[in-house]
Amino acid sequence: MSLYLAAFGFGLVSTSVLAIAAVGFTMQFGISNMINLAYGEVMIAAAYASYGLNNAGINIWVSLLGGAVFGSVSSYLINRVLYAPFQKKGTALIGMVIISLAASLMIANVLLPIVGYYSVSYRQNVGPTFHAGSIALTGVQLAIMGLAIVLMLVIHSLLKLTRLGKAMRATSANPTLARNCGIPTRRVIDTAWLITGALCGVAGTVAGMNSDTFAVASGAGFLISIIAAAVLGGAGNPYGAMIGALLIGEVTEISAAAFSPEYKEVAAFAILVLVMVLRPQGLLAKRGTLAAAG
């Protein structure tokens, strides 16, 4: 039993990492109506950007900001240079998904010669370990959870309380109508990619801080959990992604305790299959958002 409680504690940390990542991923889907398969690789690239700063002797929390800026700028560029022109040209969804997978492979393979194949880890002081029953978490892990909660509240306030958030929601719901109402959709979309890119960069760095080591090859594993969380919650819905992250984060950690850590992502996959069979529109989406012809 104590094993499962400990796994529950780790699950909360995984949830925090996953929530930051999945909210960014799902907002990109919402605002641009496309699945950005390069997301996992941008996360890894940002984690390495933070690693570069960290390795130069800068504190990990300051390096995290560097990772966020890197993720933000590179996501913005990927959308502006690659995705948006293709969408403007009228490339179908089928083409967009192939383009984003190609982009993902290209980022990974540009990164590989630069950073190498080997796993790296951050220089960080994990702080004292806090105990609550069988749950034992380090100071860093608690800080990551706090950061995730703060970021979720920021995203919530952004979407619900600011004019920009309103414009983003309008663009996501119906871009043509939003443009006709005088919303500068192009600028809104650009801002959305900057914000989600920052989330992506933060997520990559905290994922590296939470696990002992990371490597370029970790990107695909990240992507699977993120896709599972986003689809489970209802793609395009940030609140759905948060709930999805909680479920996926806990299920993966508890199944790792129950079976074997190698099969972590298999549990995420099993949930993804169940969702796709039983409720492909996700937990929080309205019925019909995923109709075949849409």
């Binding site: 496309m34 699945i35 398969l37 179908a92 969804l93 089928i94 967009m96 998904v97 192939i98 997978l101 695909a220 594993g221 699977i224 896709i227 599972a228 689809v231 793609a235 992502e265 298999v266 996959f269 993804l272 299959v273 796709m276 492909p280 995923l290 109709a291 075949a292 849409g294």
Partner: peptide, 17 residues
């Protein structure tokens, strides 16, 4: 039931898993 890009990611995830 799935939209074409959902089909694609489902298959991608299947391939990795």
């Amino acid at each position: 039931h799935l939209r074409v890009d959902y089909q694609a990611i489902a298959m991608l995830v299947l391939s990795v898993i």
